[in-house]
Simulated assay, not measured.
Amino acid sequence: MNLDGKRVLITGGSSGIGLALAHAFLDKGARVVITGRRPDVLEEAVRALQGDGLTVSGIAADVATPEGRATTLDQAVAALGGLDVLVNNAGGVRAGRLENTAEADLQAMIDVDLTAPILLTRAALPALRDGGDAMVVNVSSGIALVGAPFYATYAAVKAGLAHFGEALRRELKGEGVHVLTVYPGGTDTPMMKSNRAGPELGFSLEPPAAVADAVVEAMETNAFEVIRGGEVRAQMIALNRENPAAVDERFVGLKPALEQAVKDHSAL
């Protein structure tokens, strides 16, 4: 896909990976709309993105709600005059032992990380088809590939989003809409501020711009997926397929420190 002139909607675009993607798309000549739940943060992000001749606007809405999804799609299509790229980036996390996690927090992860992207994509497909050269980009997580203790529900919804994208890519093959799945590793975003786990526990952080650059490259080559984390992540993924018991044992030794480090990790 050539991003020059493409009309792009990014959910959760006011910070982190979403904001980095907006910068990267604008640099390629795309026209961009970003969404976010907090109007003040969204307004600040739009100001930061705007420059000479750049087309970018913001929509304050919660895509976890039917009203928020309708507002997001209607206003984005109106502002852009159509839609070529939908980036399902908005997400939330609450770490901790499953039995100690409030049901409302579990439901919130399901709503924003899985249900919202599925329903927003469904609603956006007519507009995407009209463009003739369109793409859906689903931002999953490395935890979808290697499940980590204390992230059971987050792993479930992100893995669900990944398989949704894989199946949808095959469903839409030859129909002018491609689907790309992104598996970020640890990324230095506001979502990670309450996570105190460091590299010794498997949470090395890379800049959001590095993820965004990799996504742009993948879009330009119509790749199927982007997996971040380098060779270490690739080795862990391979080991998890070939000998999952070995991964289990590796986590046993990390569990006490990891539980303490992530027990307050919340961004919902």
Results as ranks from 00 to 15, higher is better:
8 V>W: 06
190 P>E: 04
258 L>G: 01
259 E>Y: 03
31 R>Y: 01
157 V>A: 05
166 E>H: 11
197 A>D: 08
99 E>A: 14
155 A>Y: 04
214 A>K: 06
81 G>A: 13
98 L>M: 14
43 E>N: 03
68 G>A: 14
86 L>R: 11
31 R>S: 06
206 E>Q: 13
77 V>M: 14
49 L>M: 04
239 L>G: 06
201 L>C: 08
252 V>H: 12
143 I>Y: 02
4 D>Q: 15
22 A>E: 00
81 G>L: 05
225 E>W: 01
245 A>C: 04
210 A>I: 03
186 G>I: 03
209 A>G: 03
75 Q>R: 15
164 F>R: 06
253 G>Q: 07
12 G>Y: 00
236 M>W: 11
225 E>M: 10
261 A>T: 11
243 N>V: 12
74 D>V: 15
183 Y>L: 04
262 V>M: 02
182 V>I: 08
154 Y>K: 14
83 L>D: 02
120 L>M: 12
41 V>E: 04
62 D>R: 00
158 K>F: 06
93 V>M: 11
78 A>H: 13
57 S>P: 02
25 F>H: 14
131 G>S: 15
220 E>S: 06
92 G>S: 10
64 A>M: 01
244 P>S: 05
165 G>D: 08
85 V>N: 05
159 A>P: 01
143 I>C: 12
172 L>E: 15
38 R>G: 07
25 F>Y: 14
259 E>G: 11
67 E>D: 15
208 P>M: 10
20 A>L: 02
34 I>D: 00
155 A>C: 13
151 Y>A: 12
268 L>V: 04
90 A>Q: 06
118 I>Y: 11
162 A>S: 14
104 A>R: 12
188 D>Y: 07
257 A>R: 14
129 R>Y: 15
230 G>C: 07
178 H>Q: 15
192 M>H: 09
63 V>H: 03
205 L>C: 05
200 E>M: 02
32 V>K: 01
103 E>G: 11
22 A>Q: 03
72 T>A: 15
106 L>R: 13
102 A>N: 12
152 A>S: 15
166 E>R: 14
165 G>V: 08
196 R>W: 01
128 L>V: 08
18 G>S: 09
174 G>L: 07
183 Y>E: 01
5 G>Q: 09
146 V>C: 01
262 V>K: 10
103 E>M: 14
116 A>G: 10
246 A>I: 13
97 R>M: 13
52 D>N: 10
23 H>L: 00
250 R>Y: 08
66 P>C: 05
23 H>D: 02
195 N>Q: 02
106 L>Y: 07
55 T>L: 10
143 I>H: 06
77 V>S: 12
131 G>E: 02
48 A>R: 10
53 G>F: 04
105 D>N: 08
48 A>P: 00
114 L>P: 05
67 E>H: 14
64 A>G: 11
241 R>I: 12
165 G>L: 07
26 L>N: 09
